[in-house]
Each structure stands twice: as structure tokens, then as C-alpha cells.
Design a protein around this nucleic acid. Structure first.
Lengths: 109, 109
DNA sequence: AAATTATGCAACCATATAGTTGCTTATTAA
DNA sequence: TTAATAAGCAACTATATGGTTGCATAATTT
């Protein structure tokens, strides 16, 4: 349905999801759905939905232990965003000059 | 309504907007709304809406010349995304060990 | 075995998003 | 001055999103 980079961007475009992701990154251990929803003013189901989206984007994984599902963050997929931005970063400083360089470089390609 | 970083993420979370943004970045000159919609299989109004969102995120600016509105890309705001990712990048390689370091470092803060 | 706890699933709701079409207006060209 | 062009505005549509509640079920605890 959606390509991976779009899933990634959409996952972190929501401020609540960024907060959940952050909480998981800095957590000392994996957190159950209930533990997460305890620290967010939101229903357990709301959290479950966000976790699903983060999981689809590869940013959160789970381990099942009995009735618990412990979630933990995996920031690695964010590398893809870094990669995406790499191309544009060449225009950050003195952007006009660099754009010019880019255009000249690719003129006779 | 929405904070800047959220506007940024939402702006580039849409694949069509990423394409429009990219087209503007590599364009040899600023492009009018019509010129943009010509290369995208979409109505002029559709493009106008996307441009508005990109503009609100600071990624696209416009100059009015007569009946034309020429759009050009400004990739600089993407720096904020780079900044946001900086924190998580410390976990990219050998993430468990680095996470451990982070936690120990902040233990008695 | 009964009560509690952690979760999933489904339905529902309100709003946002991505797109369209139709009409108006301002600028430019014939 | 008439025709063509570039764009804005408003209304509409369909689907996605972020959230809720209620109920079912599986695992633990008492």
C-alpha cells in the first residue's frame, strides 16, 4: 500500500507517536501496552493503534510474554530518512551556489 | 495549531508533495503553479493545495509576477529534521550498547 | 474455581486529508 | 476590446486518521 519511507515519515509525523517512540527509546526496559498508556493521557486502544503504526514502520518491535506484549524501540529505520535528506543537505549552506554546482554538474549527463 | 516540526514531517510525509518538492529543488528556475501541475497528473487546484502545505512548512516560497506565482524550494528547514534525528542516531550502531551508555550517563543526573 | 489483569477485535465518531469541479477575477496577448 | 491564460475561492466527495467505548478472550493471581 504505502512505501517504506512514506510509512516512516507518517509514523513520526504524529506528535503523540513521536512521544511514545521517545519514551520507548529512553526506557530502561521494554514496556507493555498498559505501561505505555499509563503515562499517556489516552486509552489503551489508542496506544495500541499508534504502536501498530510504529511497528509497521519498523520503529517498534514486540515480544510476547504471557498476557503481556513488551514493546521496544528500534531507531535504525530512521537511517532511511537521513539517507533521503542527504540529497537536499547539499543545498543547506549557500544554497544558491550549491544548486548552481548541482545543475552544472548534471548539465551534460 | 501544529508545531513547526510536525508541519515539516507532515509536509514531506505525502509522496506527491515529496515529488513536487523534489521537482522544485532540481528545477533550473522557479516554476508557476501551472507549470508544476503540467508535470503531475493532477488538477491545478490539487497542486495549489500541496504548495500551500509546503509553504506553511517553509519548504517552498513564492514570488508573484503578474498573473504568475513562481514557486521555488527552500530545503533549509529540513535541518530541523536532522536535528531531531541527531538524538536517535546515537543508537543506530550497536544500539544496545549505546543505549546502555546513554542510560548510565543520565543515571545520576 | 473465581477474580483480576493484559490484551485484541470491532464498531463507531469527528475531523483531517487528498483530491475534484465550477465559477470568478486579474493579467496578458491578439 | 476581445480572447486567452494564470490563478484564487468555495463547495463537494471519498477516504484516512486519531481517538473512543464495549465486549471477548487468554493468562495470572488468590
Amino acid at each position: 500500500m504505502q512505501d517504506n519511507i512514506t510509512k516512516l515519515f507518517k509514523a513520526i509525523a504524529d506528535p503523540t507517536r513521536r512521544e511514545i517512540f521517545h519514551a520507548l527509546v529512553i526506557a530502561t526496559s521494554a514496556l507493555s501496552i498498559t505501561q505505555i498508556s499509563d503515562q499517556f493521557d489516552m486509552s489503551r486502544q489508542g496506544v495500541t493503534k499508534h504502536i501498530k503504526i510504529l511497528n509497521d514502520a519498523g520503529l517498534v518491535s514486540m515480544t510476547e510474554e504471557g498476557r503481556n506484549r513488551f514493546c521496544f524501540a528500534d531507531p535504525k529505520p530512521l537511517k532511511a530518512i537521513n539517507k533521503w535528506m542527504q540529497f537536499y543537505s547539499q543545498f543547506w549552506d549557500d544554497s544558491l551556489e550549491n544548486l548552481d554546482n548541482y545543475l552544472n554538474k548534471n548539465k551534460d549527463a
